[in-house]
Computed example of a mutant assay.
Amino acid sequence: MLVRDLVEKHRAEFTTAERRLIPFLKDDSLVIELQSITKLAEAAEVSTPTVIRLARKLGFDGFPALQGAIRAELAERIKQPLAKLEAPMAESGADHLINRFAEKVVQNLGQTIGQLNLADFAAAATLLSSFDRPVYLIGGRITQPVAAYFANQLANVRPRVTLMSSSRSAWPQTVMDLDDRTVLIIFDIRRYEKKMERLAEFAVSQGVQIILLTDQWGSPIEKIAHHCFRAMVEAPSSWDSTLALNFLVETFVAQVQREAADASAERIRRMEHVIGATEIF
């Protein structure tokens, strides 16, 4: 588990003094305070023994182990594509890239399913099944195609679905229509895009419900999202894999169609009629 997740898991066990350390363990902008146990204690206005006790409650031997875990997480989250290149391996048998990639994809799917909160999934699907709520979707540099696929599939089973442009210059005429009936689906994986965080902050100020699909480390948008789903994205490549994200997308579409079966069926019938009339196929 990530340190921030361990903090949430053990929050009820913390003393008042230990709770003062929580912001410094969950906010990346404060991570500079982790340079030493003394600086962290001073910044949080607690004693160094308090820091040590908290580290042990989280399952670490002491502060250095906690500090090392946080630094390792940050290093993974900001890893650039070239840093992910692996040393050459034999291209035969089990070492073939196809086999290694397939093995990693299966592992990603298993871990994504294993950490999925079913109650949260059901709540988010219910939001998407409310056809009176307009749904907007947007992705980043790598995930915009995934957002487009989600928008296309979702529009097959429900109305009022809009894919937002990834260009900020096109946002004003869209965001001005966001209100407390709106659902905004955001895709944000490392390296997290600041514009997505700004958009999310504005949307929340308008009362918008945000569904975030992110990676295993968690976008900064997690702090304000109403529903958050992490997908495993590691792959034997310079680039992260979006296959687990697509798994979540297709599962959501299936659940929406199931919850709004009659309305979705009627929409699909009408769509088939339009397709036939336009002789697309």
Score class of each variant (00 low, 15 high):
109 L>H: 06
60 F>Q: 02
87 A>E: 13
81 P>N: 05
117 N>V: 04
43 A>C: 09
151 A>I: 05
154 L>N: 02
138 I>N: 01
24 F>K: 08
128 L>I: 03
164 M>H: 06
245 L>V: 01
223 K>G: 02
19 R>P: 00
2 L>M: 14
32 I>F: 14
279 E>N: 14
83 A>K: 13
158 R>I: 09
237 S>K: 05
172 P>I: 02
66 L>C: 02
50 T>S: 13
66 L>S: 02
34 L>A: 05
46 V>G: 03
126 T>S: 15
172 P>F: 02
38 T>I: 12
89 M>F: 12
133 R>Y: 02
258 R>D: 08
269 R>I: 07
133 R>I: 03
144 Q>L: 10
123 A>R: 15
112 T>M: 09
189 I>C: 08
187 F>A: 00
103 E>K: 15
139 G>Q: 07
251 T>P: 00
149 Y>K: 11
60 F>G: 01
149 Y>Q: 13
76 E>V: 03
105 V>A: 12
155 A>C: 03
104 K>V: 08
87 A>H: 10
32 I>D: 15
131 F>W: 11
202 F>E: 11
93 G>N: 09
125 A>T: 09
160 R>G: 01
189 I>R: 08
230 R>D: 04
11 R>S: 04
187 F>C: 00
68 G>L: 07
99 N>S: 06
96 H>F: 11
74 L>Y: 10
269 R>T: 10
1 M>A: 13
270 R>Q: 15
235 A>V: 01
235 A>N: 06
70 I>T: 00
122 A>S: 15
200 A>Y: 03
159 P>M: 04
162 T>M: 09
38 T>K: 14
120 D>K: 11
153 Q>L: 15
60 F>D: 01
233 V>C: 14
251 T>E: 11
53 R>G: 01
236 P>F: 06
119 A>D: 14
264 S>L: 05
127 L>K: 12
72 A>R: 12
118 L>Y: 09
256 V>Y: 00
91 E>V: 02
178 L>S: 00
174 T>D: 12
60 F>V: 02
210 I>E: 00
251 T>G: 07
192 Y>C: 01
276 G>C: 08
48 T>F: 02
195 K>M: 13
181 R>L: 10
206 Q>A: 12
30 L>T: 05
51 V>D: 04
4 R>W: 08
234 E>N: 12
22 I>P: 03
39 K>P: 00
196 M>H: 15
185 I>R: 03
5 D>C: 00
159 P>K: 11
44 A>I: 06
16 T>G: 08
25 L>H: 06
171 W>F: 13
29 S>F: 10
148 A>K: 08
9 K>V: 01
22 I>T: 09
16 T>D: 13
90 A>K: 14
35 Q>H: 15
140 G>S: 05
25 L>G: 07
168 R>K: 14
63 F>C: 08
247 F>D: 05
26 K>D: 10
154 L>I: 06
62 G>K: 02
176 M>Y: 05
271 M>I: 09
266 E>G: 09
250 E>I: 01
76 E>I: 01
52 I>H: 10
70 I>A: 00
39 K>V: 08
263 A>Y: 04
193 E>F: 03
241 S>E: 09
70 I>C: 00
